[in-house]
Design a protein around this nucleic acid. Structure first.
Lengths: 358, 358
DNA sequence: AAAATATTCGTGTACGCACACGAAAAATTA
DNA sequence: TAATTTTTCGTGTGCGTACACGAATATTTT
């Protein structure tokens, strides 16, 4: 095994000197620096991250900024669990992870939580950049302090983030279109149900809709497609009234596409008779959504491995901090097609381990 | 942070003593052992695996026994890449991984490679238990030496393996049935194409067929289903002749189900006219198979994340060796539904990293 | 040329754990 | 009670790296 010590011996210098050239600490003459570097390259030396982690002990403060989850919006639970799992693993690498949560419908809480986060002196930050304009402010401050940051789940363009981890929204919608076509056959009509409150991650939602429509366009399939916007999905009575009256007026509708994670809310609102008549397709494997699959009210869900998104965000940022590995610019999550049958096999929210110590 | 040292101080003993009770090394009086254990539990002490790895340096020999891959059988490349990736990660934990490959059609090579493996004195073994009877012999010897072993991809029952990682074959076939139904509608007929040479992992194949048929039975859908067995899929001319003449004789066939990873072979054999008429569904995301998706000759592939299977096998066994974590008895892989559109998003054969060191 | 400063580099300690060696304490024997 | 054996436990070193401290060497100033 090639170690700093062995390199030092070969170069006729001390371990300290090798360390200095390895980390560009300066204080080494050109001549010896060259010599050491050559030997380093010759042996393709890589520092042992285990030893490094032990020696550096708790030097990194990895902070996250993401939406909280509640009964109505369970989606963000999965990435959080992924983050927790990864946190435990990277702890021994001297990386401490602390999570900051904001209300995904309130940009002020986004900024407030960011302030709290900055007070904690982050070494690196993982963000769900829910609000475009506010993210610009945030990022400016991070860049001024040279704090690396990574986006996950929402893909804002034009920033200097280390990487993005999440789904290709356009293609997600495109696949949804294909499934709708498959379920309904040629020549039919479907409805897209949106929430007006989704101004925040509007980018992803609109990309999905674009992909959905493009599937029919590109494959030259006739699909009369309507759109219904609902102001507040959390108001059950209102939603119910709105959607059912729409469906009654448009009897030809055979498919309903919900480009957000809220399809279970829609299912609860729709009358049974309409529900039986329609094929529903939505996004994300929240518990409620999966139950809709299982009781046959929803035909397909498109999922994106949210647990893995959280998990990988932490792992990648840790690798960046500890091993100086820069991940790819964009890492796309799978576009998983979930049905009643395969849904339960798709997601594992936690690795099921039994501890044997004691 | 709670360390062995802090535990030792609290218990008024030396670090060595704490180490002794931690690892049941003996040589500690009942009284002090109790005392130390109580303090250990009180703080929920867990050894720092990083420090442990550093101190133990290269103590574990993790050996794998799996089929090799070639041009005709590319399936086993993915798990191998997963194993390679994991190997690099666990190296610094003092785990050395060495792979032994056998010919999946030759049980003798299975046993021979196992002998070679045993000569290398394994600390633990990861096996693709391709041959049932021979695996019994192998396992007997492993158990005698108390060497832990883990199965992946093929789920042989009745053994004392640490865990199994792979797909639920029955449910994979079941989902294939559903997709076939979706593609063909009610009242149709389909063909199952098997290879006679698949005696080895016959178990998985037959389970898939069972699931496929059960989908139609359980949902009371009429599907006239025929079966065609082909002796040697590697003989292209023979396969061509056999399958095309069968299709001509049975003009009603609209769907073809290939419960192995060889659907691309079938595609090459079938005449274009028949190909256009039929919906094909197969298994596994080999490069050839994905190309068949992309040129529209295959409608769906069912995939099982083979890369992750290999990767996780090594990670889990490493956790077992290093951290004494015992994984769940069975860890089922996802049943991924691949189409032309989402296939390329599904699998990442390697984490795309750019090394920044030097 | 001596003194002062700047540059270059070696040494030592810590990180948390595993394990070998041998010392102290307890139990046994003479 | 002294000598011997056995049990119990403390000390020290190494794993590979990071980093602080200060020593040796080279360079500049007077």
């Amino acid at each position: 095994m090639i170690t700093i010590k062995s390199i030092a011996k070969e170069a006729n210098v001390s371990e300290g000197t090798v360390d200095r050239v390895l980390h560009d600490r300066g204080g080494v003459s050109k001549k010896t620096e060259e010599r050491v570097k050559k030997i380093l390259k010759k042996h393709n030396f890589k520092v042992n991250p285990v030893a490094r982690a032990l020696a550096m002990k708790n030097k990194f403060n990895l902070l996250t900024l993401m939406p909280n989850y509640d009964r109505d919006n369970l989606f963000w639970k999965s990435p959080y669990l992924g983050i927790l799992e990864a946190s435990a693993e990277v702890k021994n690498y001297g990386v401490t992870v602390i999570n900051y949560f904001f209300d995904q419908f309130d940009s002020d809480s986004y900024l407030n939580q960011f302030e709290a986060l900055m007070d904690a002196k982050p070494s690196a930050v993982v963000i769900v950049p829910t609000f475009a304009k506010e993210t610009k402010q945030i990022v400016d401050r991070l860049e001024k302090l040279e704090i690396p940051y990574l986006f996950f789940n929402i893909d804002l363009e034009g920033f200097d983030n280390i990487s993005f981890i999440g789904q290709d929204s356009y293609m997600g919608g495109y696949v949804a279109g294909k499934l709708m076509h498959l379920s309904l056959g040629d020549q039919t009509s479907s409805l897209i149900v949106q929430s007006r409150l989704n101004v925040n991650n509007y980018y992803a939602i609109s990309k999905r809709i674009e992909g959905f429509n493009d599937y029919f366009k590109k494959n030259k399939i006739k699909n009369e497609c309507m759109t219904l916007s609902i102001d507040n999905l959390n108001d059950a009575a209102y939603t119910k009234e709105k959607i059912n009256s729409f469906l009654e007026q448009h009897d030809s509708i055979k498919g309903i596409f919900v480009p957000s994670s809220r399809i279970s809310t829609i299912v609860e609102a729709i009358k049974d008779s309409s529900l039986k008549k329609c094929q529903l397709i939505g996004f994300d494997n929240t518990e409620q959504n999966i139950q809709c699959l299982e009781n046959d009210s929803v035909s397909f869900l498109i999922s994106q491995k949210p647990f893995e998104q959280g998990y990988e965000s932490i792992r990648l940022m840790t690798d960046f901090l500890v091993k100086h590995k820069k991940p790819a610019d964009k890492i796309y999550s799978p576009i998983d097609i979930l049905t009643k049958e395969n849904a339960r096999y798709n997601e594992r929210n936690e690795r099921e381990f039994q501890h044997n110590d004691n």
